[in-house]
Computed example of a mutant assay.
Amino acid sequence: MKASLIRRACAAALVLATTMAPAVAAEPDDTAERPDLGAQARLLGEKIVPHKLPFRDTTVGGLSGIDRDPCTGEYVLISDDRSYLQPARFYTARISVDNAGVHAVDFTGTHPFLQPDGSVYPGASAGDGKAVDPEELRVDPRSCRYWWAQEGDRPKSADAPVIQPSIQFATRTGAHRGQLPLPPNYEITLGDRGLRRNKAVEAITFDARGSVLTSAVEGPLLQDGPEPDLERGALVRVTQQNRRGDVLGQFAYPLEKIFTKPDPTSPWPPDTGVPAILAFPDDPDRYLVLERTWVAGAGFKIRIYDTTTRGATEIRHLDSLAGQNVTPMRKQLVADFHDLGLSTVDNTEGMTWGPTLPNGERTLLLVSDDNFAEDEVTQIVALGVR
C-alpha cells in the first residue's frame, strides 16, 4: 500500500463508511505469563539506498517486500511500481549484515514479472484490468522459485475495471508458472462488502517446510467493521492455506488503534495496516506481524509483534466479524522503531529472516518503500532477535 499516494489522494475517496464494529477491541493481550510469545529485538544497524538508484535500465525504489533466498544467500526484493516507471519487477541483492551492522547493499539482478502469455504487465493507466500492484515476494523453501502477492485495485468509479488480488508463482526470472486460489472473502466486490481499496493482500509467508502459505489482508474487510481510529483498533483476517489453495484456517489479528491525533490542518486521514507477516522457522502457528501507521503531522510508526494463532477463533465461515464474539490472535510487542535509535522512521513494508549470528540470535531484515517520493527513503534495517 502506497502511503504517500494516500496522503495525496482525496480523503473522502479513501474513507469507506461503515457503522459496524467488531465485538472484540483490538487491544494487545497481556502475554507476560505466556511461554510461547516473548521475542526480543535489538538494532544491529541500517543502510540507506540512494534515492532512485539507476540499475540495469530500471529505477530502484518502491521496495515493499524482501525475502532471503536459501539457494544463494542473496535477498529478493519486490518493487511496487505498477509499471509506471518500468514494468512490474523484482531485484536480487547481496546484503552484508552481522553483529556490527549493515555493511553493504549491492544489487545483483532484476527481472520483470511476466503474464501467462509471456508479456510484461501494462501500467495501471492502460485501463484494461490487467495491471498489477506488486507488494510481497517469498522464496519457495522447496524449489527456490518465487511466490508473489499483488493487491489488485478496487476502482474509485463504477466504470473503471476491478483488478482482483492474487498470489502467483514464477520462475527465478519472472516467468509465470501458476496462481494460488484465494479464499472467497479475499475478493474485491462492489458495494459494502469485501476488500477495501489499498487494503488487500499485501502480506504472505511460508512455513519452514513450504507446506503452508499464510497471508494477511492489510485492513479489515468492509463487513468486518470500520478501520482503526483513536478509540479502537480493528480485526484483520489471517489465512493459512496449503499449496493447492485449500484453506486450513482463518483467524482475526487485532490491529492497533491510531497512536495519535492528526494535524487538524491536514486533509489526509490516518492510514494503518499490516504490510508484512513472517512465520517463525520452528513454530508453524507463530508469526512476526509488522504494523505500519502514518498520521499527518506525526509521521510513521512502525511496530513488530510476536503473535500466534493458538487459541484464536476459527473465522473462515464467519461472513462478518461485526458483533461476533471472537477470540483474536494473541500478540506481544517486539519492537517499536521509535525506540531503536534509527536515523529515520519511514514507510517500512517488508521483512525477512537473515542468517543466524554466532550468539544464537536470528537476524531480521526490514525494508522501507519510498514510493519513489523525494520525502521518503529506501532503508534497510537489521535487528537481532532472540
Rank of each mutant, 00 (worst) to 15 (best):
L16S: 14
T293H: 07
P181R: 08
L63T: 03
G323Y: 09
G299W: 06
R386M: 09
P226C: 10
T214H: 07
T92A: 15
N242Q: 11
Q240F: 01
T352G: 01
A208C: 08
A149M: 06
G65Q: 05
A93K: 04
D370P: 03
R310I: 12
E74W: 05
A175Y: 06
S143A: 11
V217T: 14
I204D: 02
T171M: 08
G127F: 07
D69Q: 04
L383Y: 00
H51D: 09
G123Y: 07
P275T: 13
Q241A: 11
F372I: 01
E46R: 06
K199T: 08
S4D: 15
A203D: 00
L357T: 07
F280G: 04
G109R: 11
R244G: 13
G354F: 04
E349P: 06
R138P: 04
E349C: 09
K301S: 13
T307Y: 04
I6G: 07
V377Q: 15
F169W: 15
P116K: 12
E291A: 10
N99G: 15
T19Y: 09
A276N: 10
D346I: 08
T18Q: 11
P254I: 12
D159A: 14
A9H: 11
G45N: 06
D224E: 01
R177V: 07
T344V: 14
V238M: 07
L14G: 00
N99P: 03
L195R: 09
L5Q: 12
P270C: 13
T308N: 09
A104C: 05
E314F: 04
R138G: 02
R172G: 05
D117A: 08
A203L: 08
Q332F: 07
P269T: 13
T308G: 03
L213N: 02
D159H: 12
S125C: 05
P269G: 14
R209G: 14
G354L: 09
I48A: 10
P54W: 09
L180I: 14
D30P: 01
P262E: 05
T308M: 08
T307P: 00
E291T: 14
A276P: 01
L342D: 01
V24N: 11
